[in-house]
Each structure stands twice: as structure tokens, then as C-alpha cells.
């Protein structure tokens, strides 16, 4: 299982099916939260997750597909697009240097 320490994370990728709706919304709120830790946030269709990605946030329904596209990345699934605990989990791992795992 891929793992990463939050303090090593430089980029978080938000993936959704088409990369034009929900991932944009999530990326917009995550960008605000992670700005102060010098972490970039990108959004993408799940099929285009860049191979060097460390952390992917995606809807639970797409987690398996994301794993297939980016087997090296830590996949953090969420259930709801706003206020899901997964967002806080990623933020606090980056803030405090905690471990994230798939």
C-alpha cells in the first residue's frame, strides 16, 4: 500500500470523472486550505492523473479507477463534496507531518 508523510507532499490532485465539475469545486476549497503549506492543488479527469502524483483525493465511487491509473499514489476517497472528513484528514497530515495511506 502506498504511503506518504504529509510533510513531503508538494501536490494534491483532485480527480473526478470528467474533471470539469466536482473536482473543480473541491480543488477550489482545498487550494485555500493548503495555500499556507506551499502545496499545489490541481484538478483532473480520473483517467489523466499524472504518474508522479503523491496524493489523490477522489469520490469513493472512483477510487478503484484512480488506483489503476496511479498505483503509486495514495488515494484518499471522500463521500460528500463539501465538508467530508477526508479533506480535514489530508490537511492535518500536511500540517502536522502525519502519514497518509491508501
Amino acid at each position: 500500500m502506498p504511503t506518504v508523510n504529509g510533510s513531503d507532499v508538494k501536490k494534491v490532485v483532485i480527480a473526478c470523472d470528467a474533471g470539469m465539475g466536482s473536482s473543480v469545486m473541491v480543488a477550489s476549497t482545498m487550494k485555500k486550505k493548503l495555500k499556507k503549506y506551499d502545496v499545489t492543488v490541481e484538478h483532473t479527469p480520473v483517467n489523466n492523473i499524472p504518474p508522479d502524483t503523491q496524493v489523490v483525493l477522489c469520490h469513493a465511487g472512483l477510487a478503484e479507477r484512480a488506483k489503476g491509473i496511479a498505483p503509486e499514489a495514495v488515494i484518499v476517497p471522500f463521500q460528500v463534496f463539501m465538508g467530508d472528513p477526508a479533506f480535514a484528514k489530508v490537511e492535518s497530515a500536511i500540517k502536522d507531518g502525519g502519514t497518509l495511506e491508501s
Binding site: D17, S22, H59, F81, M82, G83
Partner: peptide
């Protein structure tokens, strides 16, 4: 596939 309901 996945609902596009965002909240509110």
C-alpha cells in the same frame, strides 16, 4: 455514475 449533488 456519481451524483453531482454538491450540498446546500
Amino acid at each position: 455514475s456519481v451524483s453531482t449533488y454538491m450540498g446546500e
